[in-house]
């Protein structure tokens, strides 16, 4: 074969490979939505069609099912609280790491990085006891605290990299132009870091939204959507499962789309 035809064949293989990988990612999601958007009889029926009938009976069955709306609302509340807590606690730490050299800095970084080497959802076991003692058991706040522990290391490292990306000179310039530390932060650093901070907040939201184990361990009455779905897995009919799955996936699609620009800022820092 001549050079160009070899290259053309290579290109075709490349394009086919890319198409295959896209199909691999998207097809299973498509199938879930086919189920969610079909009538319950179709979901349990056989054989399956690969296109949805756009019958909303499954979804209305799901949303009408006792406890679903509460669970959904609980998920949103826990995730929102996690988002606020992890940024509120994590961003100041990220800022401190990016701007100061001080004894103990490496110890702190080690503590944060170390959390990654531990299976964090297991924390829920001892915390369940602690929460019972403090009255935080089966509450939105209790679960949000655990989810914040999951999200906090990311929030710290992401905001650390965000703030490090903003030259210290800009802050110093603001100081020489009449700002105190707080003003320089709000007038210069915050506007520049805001999109990134928002992205890491969304990321914290997703971590909480998706978390299953701790949610299932720590909540009984106030279950989140994941805990609800997990605990009713062996009793609930298929249409309920698939509609629930779709309800979990759909926001995630938007979240990832919203933070797509920052995915690398978030994970690239993992290399440091």
């Amino acid at each position: 074969m001549s050079e160009p035809s070899v290259r053309r064949a290579g290109n075709r293989v490349f394009i086919a490979g890319v198409a295959l990988l896209i199909l691999w990612v998207l097809l299973p999601i498509w199938l879930l939505f086919v189920n969610a958007l079909s009538a319950p009889a179709e979901v349990t029926g056989f054989p399956k069609r690969f296109i949805p009938s756009f019958d909303l009976a499954s979804l209305s069955f799901f949303f009408g099912f006792s406890g679903v709306i509460d669970a959904l609302w609980n998920s949103v509340k826990v995730a929102a609280l996690t988002m606020i807590l992890s940024i509120g606690v994590g961003a100041p730490a990220g800022y401190a790491l990016s701007r100061f050299d001080f004894p103990g800095k490496e110890t702190f970084r080690f503590l944060v990085v170390m959390t990654r080497a531990f299976p964090l959802p297991l924390l829920a076991l001892p915390l369940a006891v602690m929460f019972i003692r403090t009255g935080l058991d089966d509450t939105i706040i209790g679960l949000a605290l655990v989810h914040t522990t999951l999200a906090l290391p990311f929030a710290v490292l992401i905001t650390y990299s965000l703030f490090s990306g903003i030259p210290l000179e800009l802050e110093e310039a603001a100081w020489t132009l009449g700002c105190n530390r707080v003003q320089a932060f709000t007038k210069v650093i915050l506007p520049l870091a805001a999109p990134g901070i928002a992205a890491s907040a969304v990321f914290a939201f997703v971590i909480s939204w998706n978390e299953v184990f701790a949610a299932a361990v720590l909540t009984v009455e106030n279950r989140t959507l994941t805990a609800f779905l997990l605990q009713s897995l062996d009793v609930s009919p298929l249409p309920l499962k698939f509609a629930g799955g779709a309800a979990l996936v759909l926001p995630a699609l938007f979240f990832i789309f919203a933070v797509r620009k920052y995915l690398f800022a978030m994970w690239g820092i993992a290399n440091r």
């Binding site: 990612v25 998207l26 299973p28 999601i29 199938l31 879930l32 086919v34 189920n35 997703v206 939204w209 998706n210 978390e211 299953v212 994941t226 779905l229 997990l230 499962k241 698939f242 629930g244 799955g245 979990l248 996936v249 995630a252 699609l253 979240f255 990832i256 797509r260 995915l263």
Partner: peptide, 17 residues
């Protein structure tokens, strides 16, 4: 990157289908 945002429970349900 989409699966990055999908919970393990949802992934299990997806493959259950």
């Amino acid at each position: 990157a989409i699966p990055l945002g999908i919970s393990d429970l949802a992934a299990g349900l997806i493959w259950l289908s």
